[in-house]
Amino acid sequence: MIVGEQKPFEEIWEMIKSFRKVLVFGCNTCVAICHAGGGKEAEILASLIRMKAIQEGIGMEVKHAAIERHCEPEFFDPMMEDIKTNDVVLSTACGVGVNFLAERIGDIPVFPGINTQFFGAVPKAGIFVELCAGCGNCILHLTGGICPIARCAKSLMNGPCGGTNKGKCEISQDVDCGWYLIVERMKKLGALEKLYEIQPLRNWSTATYGGPRRVVLEHIKDIEGQ
């Protein structure tokens, strides 16, 4: 899932304070699971904005709504006319949702209510951890299912640097050393010798460094076209 965190309220207020009709627009998928931008969070944020507007003596109409997914048009297309009655949309969807809505909404601004952070998992309620960097060139079969790109602070490909300390990364005692985990996992799998081979230089062009990426499935595209 995509993990995000709500922006500080003051930052949000600075973005929207000059607008009079505000829609706080949540997404009930990934960002709802991480309690950052689902319908519930959008509703709470809308209340906070209303109170702030009253405090500041500003006449502001603040509505809230949420849909299942901001990343596919069919979910928000039915309510697009309603959305367009506002001066600004404060989206609490991930950055994908903000971009996608901005492309379709015409001349109404769409602002981000959350900072979109990473692809992550939820090992325990309230804890979200980054496990994949979406680099477009997966090598998890070589590293015991633990990603050195996402989980080593230096994205090293050939083992831990000298900064690993009792299984922790040099950047923080709160961060596991990804390569320590990989070595331990490969030992368990009886496949440590796989890590004796030198891994070649990465092709980073499949990651975001190669420019914006797209995937086209010709067979599906054709069927839809018909």
Partner: peptide
């Protein structure tokens, strides 16, 4: 940056 690692 970390385009390549020290072994590479």
């Amino acid at each position: 940056v970390y385009d390549i690692d020290s072994i590479q």
